[in-house]
């Protein structure tokens, strides 16, 4: 299934049903500013197929607003099982790891309190998509390894585990090792961004291919028309 970006705000009430411990900028580049009765927000609207409409929003007064995004569904979606299935579909189709969901409908909560899942950290499977997103955001859809290392902490909230020093490489933190592995050692694996044709290596970095842009379009990160989906060689 494809996650399509919608250009307009929803014409109905939307209800918060999950909070994801990822920034809005991590989820999509197609961000617009809005305001409703609560406050000003940054957000984006999406549809999966014809049925699943949802919004991602960050209101400036949300707790942990720099590193979380709240998932909203139309108010007519009220069945708890349907809500649970819809949330699962959305995070899967947006390539967001399950560990990133800090709260979802059905879990008990206390107002004003939100904690990150203790096992949530940067893993290689997520790092693959993350570096693809970062490279796609750069001029020429390409990024050096240094640029990736510089940008990742701005977009991904590194956990205490991510920031631990590597036992094998004393000068590097664990997340840096993850990125290094993603970039360098697994080029023959079937699920790497290189093996899937989403990126190709360039000296000391990577460049996103048309196929990679197609993929990022399909998870709602970009909203490029076909004419924009050209690979700048």
């Amino acid at each position: 299934m494809t996650v399509r970006v919608l250009r307009y705000d929803p014409e109905n009430e939307v209800i918060p049903h999950a909070i994801i411990w990822r920034s809005l900028r991590y989820c999509t580049l197609v961000i617009r500013e809005g305001q409703d009765d609560l406050d000003k927000y940054s957000g984006a609207s999406f549809v999966i197929g014809n049925d699943i409409r949802f919004d991602l929003r960050v209101y400036r007064g949300h707790i942990h607003s720099e590193v979380t995004v709240t998932l909203y569904l139309p108010e007519e979606v009220r069945d708890e099982q349907q809500i649970a299935q819809t949330i699962s579909t959305i995070i899967r189709e947006m390539a967001i790891p399950v560990s990133a969901v800090a709260w979802r409908r059905g879990l008990k909560f206390h107002y004003g309190k939100l904690e990150r899942a203790p096992d949530d950290r940067l893993r290689e499977s997520e790092a693959r998509i993350l570096i693809l997103k970062i490279a796609a955001s750069q001029p020429g859809r390409a990024a050096s390894s240094d640029k990736l290392r510089q940008e990742i902490p701005k977009i991904f909230d590194l956990s205490p585990v991510d920031k631990k020093m590597s036992p094998s490489r004393k000068r590097e933190m664990l997340w840096q090792i993850v990125v290094r592995n993603t970039m360098s050692s697994h080029t023959t694996g079937t699920r790497t961004i290189f093996a899937q044709g989403w990126a190709r290596k360039i000296p000391n970095g990577l460049k996103v291919t048309k196929s990679g842009l197609d993929y990022l379009n399909s998870i709602g990160f970009l909203d490029l028309s076909k004419s924009d989906l050209t690979e700048a060689e």
């Binding site: 305001q35 409703d36 009765d37 609560l38 406050d39 000003k40 400036r60 007064g61 009220r78 708890e80 809500i83 409908r105 059905g106 879990l107 008990k108 909560f109 206390h110 107002y111 004003g112």
Partner: peptide
């Protein structure tokens, strides 16, 4: 619609904005 918190005893707040919280 799922488990919810107890009645909050903490305060709530609204933030100034140019249309709905002037």
């Amino acid at each position: 619609m799922g488990a919810v918190s107890e009645v909050p005893i903490e305060p709530f707040h609204r933030v100034e904005n140019p249309t709905t919280q002037t």
